Computed example of a mutant assay.
Amino acid sequence: MYHYIKRIIDFTMALIGLIILSPLFMLLALIIKLDSKGPVFFKQKRVAKDKLYFNILKFRTMRVDTPKDMPTHMLNNPDAFITRLGRLLRKTSLDELPQIINILKGEMSIVGPRPCLWNQYDLIAERDKYGANNIYPGLTGWAQVNGRDELPIEVKAKLDGEYVKRRSFAFDVKIFFKTIFRVIKSDGVKEGGMGSVKIKEVEVREKVK
């Protein structure tokens, strides 16, 4: 039952968010065009519910000559490809705002496992163990509020699996507000990092909570 209610909540909140944030959208679009050559939006093939594909939308934060379909951590020098405005957008997570459109289209949810690249086979395989590929990916998720870029693949998948088991309105609300606090603090943002938080550290953190 929550699956259907969740879709209604996602659509309603995304629509309200798009209306309220439309001035910010237009301002960022203008600055992006002035800051560097290239389109305002960045599209990338990602894994959706049931391992189907969709094009995720972001505000472009990197140069147009950046290698496509490659995770940031696999670039030799990711900072060299990030634009001046892009650094701020990525640090504040404002680059993720266009995914409100993905939510309205029914491709994503507000809360769920973050959609991985189509060629991140190791993460996809790990998520299969926990059923995390069988639900809609999210704008934010349980893994994001527990380490974000610092987490290694096996820990991300484990946390995504925990979300699948605990999925509820109350849990989604908890993740939503924890996301706001982490974004304000810029916790877990680590360009080019494979992940420094160990599995045991995450398990201890969860026990403390």
Rank of each mutant, 00 (worst) to 15 (best):
L159A: 07
P23C: 13
Q120N: 14
V189Y: 01
E96K: 09
A48L: 06
I5R: 02
C116R: 00
L85G: 05
V40H: 03
L75V: 05
I175E: 12
N134T: 11
F81Y: 15
K178P: 05
E203Q: 14
L18G: 10
F42T: 00
I20A: 13
L52D: 10
M108I: 06
W118A: 10
K198Q: 15
L104E: 01
K37E: 11
Q44I: 00
L30C: 12
T61S: 15
R63Q: 14
E206F: 07
I175H: 05
I180E: 07
K174L: 12
Q99K: 02
Y2C: 11
N134K: 13
D122A: 07
D149K: 13
K68Y: 07
G141R: 03
F59H: 04
I19R: 06
R114F: 10
F177T: 10
E206T: 12
I100W: 01
L57F: 15
W118V: 12
R114V: 03
Q144R: 08
T12A: 15
N102K: 08
S168A: 04
I19S: 08
L57Q: 04
R114L: 03
K68V: 11
M62H: 02
F171W: 05
T179I: 04
E96W: 14
I16M: 13
G141C: 08
Y163E: 09
L85Q: 01
T66Y: 04
F59A: 07
K91S: 12
I101K: 01
I100S: 01
S36F: 07
I124R: 02
L151E: 03
L18E: 03
E126S: 02
E154L: 06
P67T: 04
D122T: 14
R205L: 14
K165S: 11
K51C: 14
R46M: 08
G192A: 12
V145H: 01
F177S: 11
D69E: 14
R84V: 09
V145F: 05
K158G: 03
R87K: 15
L159P: 10
G38Q: 10
G195A: 12
L27E: 06
W142E: 04
A132H: 03
L117V: 05
N133L: 09
I101N: 04
E154I: 15
S93N: 13
L28V: 15
V145W: 04
G161Q: 02
V145I: 15
K6G: 09
I56D: 02
Y4E: 12
S196K: 11
K68R: 15
N77V: 10
L104C: 05
I20H: 04
N133V: 12
Y2V: 09
I82L: 09
L57C: 07
D128T: 04
M62E: 04
E154M: 08
V197A: 07
G131V: 00
R182F: 11
E154C: 05
P71Y: 00
A14H: 07
Q99I: 00
P71L: 11
I180D: 07
L57V: 00
R63T: 15
F81G: 01
I135N: 02
T92P: 01
H3T: 13
S168H: 07
V47A: 02
